[in-house]
């Protein structure tokens, strides 16, 4: 029996799943109220622990930890990945990173999927998948570039499905390009961590420190007001 705990903090939501062979996955999610900051730091491990308690398990019982690599909110990615490092480091459990856009596309179950996450600052992170295989890698795109990317995808696959909170945020652009965008409240737009766990199941786990965020964007190189030292 393989037990996998997975989590993703690349969007404002904190999403967690516990997947065991032959059992229905357990899921938990925290979504901040509109205008509130994401609850990644305060919610992630309590949600994990709650799922483990429901299954009658402890952190020490895990065979594997799966974590979403983003792209997404920088701080959220680091909270999730640093937590994964700590858990894996202390337990010897394998840590596997899965690109969040890939999990999103795999959850959409379409032959051609444009996975789109809201990158803030008026941009979207988008990657294209064909039968689960990445065909165009993730980049941060302003609306005009996203529309061009979407048109290209539709040219190759007329039935391209666009999913993710970015697909909701940029619905008009994507629909103009010919993509199909499911209704705003469709579950398919959310990162399903059970899918992320399933992807992580058959991948090799390397050293935890090799699991690092998929930032896509360069950091803002602005020094802090003071240099605390």
């Amino acid at each position: 029996m393989t037990t996998i705990l997975g989590f993703d903090c690349s969007t404002p939501a904190t999403a967690v799943a516990l997947v065991r062979d032959g059992e229905e996955p357990l899921r938990a999610r925290h979504v901040p109220e509109p205008g509130d900051r994401p609850g990644h730091a305060t919610q992630l491990l309590p949600l994990c622990n709650a799922l483990l308690e429901r299954a009658g398990l402890r952190f020490a019982d895990l065979d594997r930890v799966a974590v979403g690599l983003g792209p997404g909110t920088f701080t959220g990615l680091r909270i999730a990945i640093a937590t994964g490092h700590g858990l894996a480091h202390a337990s010897g459990t394998g840590l596997v990173g899965v690109p969040t856009l890939e999990a999103l596309a795999a959850g959409a179950d379409g032959a051609a999927v444009l996975a789109v996450l809201d990158a803030r600052r008026g941009e979207a992170f988008a990657a294209e998948y064909s039968d689960g295989v990445p065909t165009v890698p993730a980049t941060a795109l302003p609306p005009q570039a996203l529309e061009i990317r979407a048109r290209d995808a539709v040219t190759r696959h007329p039935s391209t499905l666009a999913v993710g909170d970015g697909a909701v945020a940029f619905r008009a652009v994507l629909e103009r390009a010919g993509c199909t965008v499911p209704p705003d409240d469709a579950e398919i737009h959310r990162v399903d961590v059970a899918v992320l766990c399933a992807l992580a199941r058959d991948r090799p786990a390397g050293p935890p420190e090799a699991v690092l965020p998929f930032y896509v964007r360069a950091p803002d190189a602005q020094p802090a007001r003071s240099s605390r030292r």
């Binding site: 491990l45 020490a60 894996a88």
Partner: peptide, 8 residues
């Protein structure tokens, strides 16, 4: 927190 949680 991850280190500590893994070993309670």
């Amino acid at each position: 927190k991850g280190l500590a949680a893994a070993r309670e």
